[in-house]
Amino acid sequence: MPASINSRIPSETSDLRVALFSGNYNMVADGPTQALNRLVGHLLRHGAAVRVYAPTIPNPAVEATGDLVSLPSFAIPGRSEYRVTMGLQPHIRRDLKEFAPNVLHVSSPDPAGHRAVSWARKRDIAVLTSVHTRFETYPRYYNLAFTEPLLEALLRRFYRRADALVAPSESMAQVLRDQRMNYDIGIWSRGVDRDVFNPGRRSMEWRREQGFGDDEIVIGFFSRLVMEKGLDVFSDAVDELRRKGVKHRVLVVGEGPAREWFQNRLPNAVFTGYRGGADLATSVASMDLLFFPSITETFGNVTLEAMACGLPVVAAQATGSESLVDDHVSGRLIRPGAIHQYADALQAYVTDADLRRRHGAAGEQRSLEFSWDRINQSVADTYLRLVRQRALRS
C-alpha cells in the first residue's frame, strides 16, 4: 500500500468524523434514541467528531448528546409525536460540506436519509446504515398488510446503497439476510446499565403504593403504548388467564397514543404512565414477570432491562427476543398470536415461585454479557473498516 494512501486512512476512533442522520434522536424516548445517544457519547469520549442531523421539537423527551442540527420536517398524521424529514435543504448541504465527514451513519430510511446516502455516494464517503425497528411489519396493525411487499422492496433499495448494515441482534440480522437487504450485515447489539437496572431496585413499598398486596403476582408490561407493541395480544392473553381462574395483577408502565384503548381493555390494571431512569428501574424490578408479545422489535431493550432486574420473560418467538430469551431457561418464547400458549406460560410463572426465581436468575446472568462500551466500540470499529475499504478502492 502506498504510504500516501496509508496516511489518509483513519486508524483510531479519534480520527473519525461521523455525520449521523436520525428520524428520532431526542423527540421521543424509546430504544433507538437511547442507543443513538449512547453511541454518540461513546464516540465523543474517544475523541471522534460527531454531528447529528435530525428533526427537532420545542420540548424533546431526551436531552440530545452532542451537536444536533435540526432537519426540516412535518408531523406524521395520527402519530404527531413522530416527524418525517423533508430531504436535504441547501443550508443542510452546506453544513455537511463544512463538517467534512469521513463516514455517514443513517439510522432511518426517511427522505433525509435517502438524500444523505446520495450525497455521500457522490463524494465517495463511506456509509453505514442501522436498523432499529421492523418498519415492514407496521402495516399489519393498521389494516394495510397488503403493502408489506412494496415496503420491503423500498427498504431493500435503500439499504443496498450503503456499504454495510448493522442490526441489533443476530435474529434480526438473519431476517435482513433473508430479505437480501445488504451483503455486509453485522451486529450492533444493545447494552443495559446495570447500575440502574438490577434486582436491588425491587421495592415492596413502591408496590404497596400502587395498590398491590405483598402476596399478589404482578404481570408487567413496559414500553411505548402503541398497537404495534402487541397490546391486543397482551390483553387477549390476560383475559384468557382470568377465565382460567388464575389470580394475578397487571402493571403497565409507559405512555403513548394507545393508552386509552389499553386501559379500556384492561380496566383492573395499574397504569403508571411514563417512567424513566431509576423510577423505571424500580417499576420494572417490582414486577414479578414481564409479558412482552411485540413482534416489531429488532432487539428488545425492554426484554433485556427486565432480565437485568431478575424477571422471567414471556415473549413472542420473534426477532430480538429470540436472541435474548433462552426458552424454558430464562423465560418462554411463544408463537406470535398464540393466545392459549401465552396464557399457559403466564400461568406457570404466576403459580410457581421457584420457577420464577430460577428463570429470573438465569435472565439476570445473561444480561451481564451486554456492555455498552464494548458494543458501541464495535460500531466505531465498523466505521473504521468501511472508511479503510473505501479508501483502498479509490
Score class of each variant (00 low, 15 high):
Glu205Asn: 11
Thr65Val: 15
Ala281Gly: 06
Leu155Ile: 05
Gly78Thr: 00
Asp352Val: 03
Gly113Cys: 10
Asp195Lys: 14
Asn143Lys: 11
Ser235Ile: 06
Ala3Lys: 12
Arg115Thr: 03
Phe370Met: 10
Asn24Thr: 14
Pro257Leu: 08
Pro101Gln: 11
Leu251Asp: 00
Ala338Lys: 13
Arg201Leu: 07
Val69Pro: 01
Pro90Ser: 12
Asp232Phe: 07
Thr33Gly: 03
Arg134Val: 09
Arg224Glu: 03
Phe21Pro: 01
Met287Ile: 03
Gln365Phe: 12
Arg357Asn: 11
Ile125Val: 15
Ala153Val: 01
Leu43Arg: 13
Ser107Asp: 08
Arg357Glu: 14
Leu154Lys: 09
Val246Asn: 02
Tyr141Pro: 06
Ile219Leu: 09
Pro58Gly: 13
Met86Arg: 10
Arg38Leu: 15
Val270Trp: 04
Arg45Pro: 07
Leu176Met: 14
Phe234Asp: 00
Tyr349Pro: 10
Ser294Ile: 05
Pro109His: 06
Leu384Met: 13
Leu128Arg: 02
Ser367Phe: 03
Phe221Lys: 06
Thr13His: 03
Thr129Gly: 03
Ala116Gln: 09
Arg249Trp: 01
Tyr342Gly: 05
Val233Asn: 01
Glu228Pro: 01
Val18Phe: 01
Gly220Trp: 00
Ala100Val: 04
Arg94Gln: 15
Gly276Phe: 10
Thr298Leu: 11
Ser378Gly: 14
Val302Pro: 03
Ala100Gln: 14
Val69Ser: 03
His132Ile: 02
Arg180Phe: 08
Phe291Cys: 04
Leu241Asn: 04
